[in-house]
């Protein structure tokens, strides 16, 4: 792991020092999604992504990562005074997560910042494999982002706190309100955005989550009272 870290750090540092070699003007204000630039009023940027997570073996009892990729559609809509609204829907077929929230972005030249919060409503339904189960809940994601625009790409970091608001489940005719701790955990992600071919921009991202309850694996009904590290790799198209 240390070798991995060294390699990663040194090369990224080198990259940023020498990026002027690749001087070419690209329009990041219109084509990036995670980079927290300011938005024109009514400007829209949307993205379509796929995320693969390495779920904790203690919960899912397998090291299979491809079981439930998360597909996501996200949209940002520019508002006056550097505000914007972001909405998204994520799904792994048996689960849907809808998020909506305001953000305030500010840019110092190539350095952008964002503060915001998202309200999440998630619901799941499973009626195969011996399940007769429905599930839904609410969560809050206060978040902060920072990003820098290099000559040929942008690099952004986004971190969230995750709070559980409410959750209930129904199995057959049995229904309960789940007891979840209010503070669920936190996440941090790093997103590299750049043109892939022509004017088509993509995002390569890694996101680390440290959560007691990770909503896509609700059907495991985890009862562990401890936070798990769940890494996600994401690939996103921007349009």
């Amino acid at each position: 792991m240390k070798i991995f870290l060294l390699l990663f750090t040194i090369l990224f540092a080198q990259t940023f020092l020498l990026t002027p070699l690749f001087a070419q003007q690209l329009n990041f204000q219109e084509n990036t999604f995670f980079y927290p630039h300011t938005y024109e009023n009514r400007q829209i940027v949307s993205s379509l992504g796929i995320a693969l997570a390495k779920l904790p073996e203690d919960v899912v009892e397998t090291d299979d990562v491809f079981r439930a990729p998360l597909f996501s559609y996200r949209l940002k809509y520019g508002l006056p005074e550097n505000f914007l609204a972001e909405g998204s829907v994520e799904t792994n077929i048996v689960t849907f997560n809808f998020m909506l929230g305001p953000k305030w972005n500010y840019q110092f030249d190539k350095l952008g910042f964002s503060l915001g919060t998202d309200l999440s409503f998630y619901l799941g339904k499973l009626e195969q494999f011996g399940f007769d189960t429905k599930f839904n809940g609410w969560a809050l994601y206060p978040n902060i982002s920072a990003g820098y625009q290099f000559e040929k790409f942008t690099l952004s970091v986004k971190s969230e706190l995750v709070f559980n608001l409410a959750e209930q489940s129904k199995n057959g005719e049995s229904e309960i309100e789940n007891d979840l701790d209010f503070f669920n955990g936190w996440t941090i992600g790093m997103y590299l955005e750049q043109p892939f071919w022509g004017d088509n921009y993509v995002v390569l991202g890694v996101r680390s989550t440290f959560l007691k309850f990770y909503y896509p694996m609700w059907a495991a009904f985890s009862t562990f009272d401890r936070a798990f590290y769940i890494p996600e790799a994401t690939f996103t198209f921007i349009f």
Partner: peptide, 9 residues
């Protein structure tokens, strides 16, 4: 950032 992402994991 790299430290945060790749340690404690």
């Amino acid at each position: 950032v790299s430290l945060l992402l790749f340690y404690s994991c």
